[in-house]
Amino acid sequence: MHILYIHQYFKIPSEPGGTRSYWVAKRFIEEGHKVTMLTTSSSIQEKIVHKTIDGIEVIYLKVPYNQNMSIMARVKSFINFMIKSTRLALKVKNVDLALATSTPLTVGFPALVLKKLRKIPFIFEVRDLWPEVPIQMGGLNNKLLQKLAVNFEKSIYKNAKHIVALSPGMAAGVLKYEPQEKVSMIPNMAKIDAFWPREKNKQLQTELGLRTDSFKLIHFGALGLANGAMSIIRGAEELKEDTSIEFIFIGGGSTEEELKNYCQKHQLKQVHFLGRFPMEETSEIVNFCDVSMVSFKDLPILYTNSPNKLFDSLSAGKPIIVNSAGWTKEMVEKHNCGVYVNPHQPTALAQAIKSLQVDDTLKNEMAKNARKLAETTYDKSILCDQYASLIAAGN
């Protein structure tokens, strides 16, 4: 089977960012399928670049995008890719199945066109419940546009052969419109061979300007509006006088400068913004930290999130502090691999951090449980098998 995989932000392991589509595509190839990945790159010079990467035929379109873009610039990028990818998708020969993975929702448009014009079925993967996310975040306020976007969402779901959601909350959002048998939940993936507990790299800590004897908390990944990382900074402010603790941010996004400026203004010298790193170095940094923090803005729609950093933290064997009152809260509490802290209570965050710092037994038990959960439930080998079975079953 020839699968046309449409993902605007496709990344390979040597690049910063989520690699779910890479691993899924690789598993399809192992099953004997041919995979053509249709994606974007801001760095290419030509309008279109073809590459074969680990058996995946990747078509890169030159469509700029980054986390620091304004809302209007992002919308322009989404529409640009929607138009260009649709034109190119229609030219790809002998396609048997399309797989479009959001966000944004516009990624579903080329798959929809392929079905209408070439009778090619498609699977739609829901990584965020658009347009509800931008509506609740205030990025889509026009009532007419909201209605049009919701109708577009319903049309994609209706025309999809099958829908894969990345969390129970996302699946519930789809089930408002589609029957149970049409929807599967395959969450984001842990990578137990890429993130794992090992001896801490003290040399790298020193090179990055960090202490080797401090208690370290890490937030890695995007620092966009949806991440609400100021809640972590407020917690750090509560611990301002405690020199035994360091807060580390790796990644970046639209709120990064605001966070940096706040830390500078309030002399939060224990907070470090280290920038972006490829997965191998990210793994080293996460490994020498003691606790991972997964932060989101306090909006009901974001309770459905399925963040990469959560599953990489499980793989790394780190206790996880979450501030989203959804399924991730239920997960860390049920499996005793972390704690939930209300994002509006910085004092509670500070207390949770100190509790983990002083109680090695608790911290080590949570770390062990996190790794076990990654190995037995969320590793990419397990979830990619589920995806391959979905395809084999004809969905």
Rank of each mutant, 00 (worst) to 15 (best):
L144E: 07
I232W: 05
D360P: 00
R234I: 00
K176E: 11
C384E: 02
L310M: 15
Q270N: 15
M170G: 03
D193Q: 12
D242C: 05
T52N: 09
F215M: 09
Y60A: 04
E57Y: 01
K154E: 11
I301G: 04
E125S: 06
V332N: 11
Q180Y: 11
G18W: 05
V322L: 07
F296I: 12
S77N: 01
A98H: 09
L140I: 00
S77A: 14
Y177D: 08
M331S: 10
W23V: 11
M170P: 03
K93Y: 05
T103F: 15
F277C: 06
F220T: 01
I248S: 09
I59D: 01
A350P: 14
E238Y: 15
A229I: 11
N142V: 05
P346N: 01
G209R: 08
L61S: 01
G17H: 06
Q351I: 06
F109V: 12
K329N: 04
V24E: 04
S77W: 02
K84A: 13
A388L: 02
G394Q: 13
E132P: 00
F249V: 08
Q45M: 15
T86P: 04
E199G: 11
E330G: 02
V35P: 08
V286Y: 02
R211T: 03
E207P: 07
T19G: 05
A229L: 13
A388K: 02
Y9W: 00
N151S: 14
E333D: 14
S389G: 06
T328M: 14
Y9F: 04
K182Q: 00
L148N: 06
M69H: 02
L383E: 05
K62E: 07
A190L: 10
F152N: 03
I232Y: 05
S355D: 04
L90T: 08
V341Q: 01
A393E: 13
E280K: 13
K47P: 01
D385E: 15
I71L: 14
N395W: 05
Q67D: 14
M293D: 06
Y22E: 10
T243A: 15
V75F: 10
K269R: 12
G235I: 09
S77V: 03
A392P: 04
G18T: 13
I83R: 10
E257G: 05
D193C: 07
F78A: 12
C384H: 03
W130A: 12
K91Q: 14
K380T: 11
D379K: 02
G251C: 06
E30R: 14
Q351P: 00
V294M: 09
N336H: 15
L105E: 07
V95W: 04
E256S: 08
G18P: 08
A352T: 12
A149Y: 00
S85C: 03
I29C: 03
M82L: 09
F311G: 10
K62M: 10
D298H: 11
H50Q: 15
I382T: 08
I48M: 01
E333M: 12
Y60F: 14
G252W: 07
V95P: 08
L217N: 06
G235Y: 09
I71D: 11
V35F: 08
L302I: 07
V35G: 07
S313G: 09
L4T: 05
E257H: 14
T19F: 07
I123P: 12
E207F: 06
L274Y: 01
K119Y: 00
T106P: 07
N305T: 15
N80K: 01
M137Q: 15
K47A: 13
K84P: 08
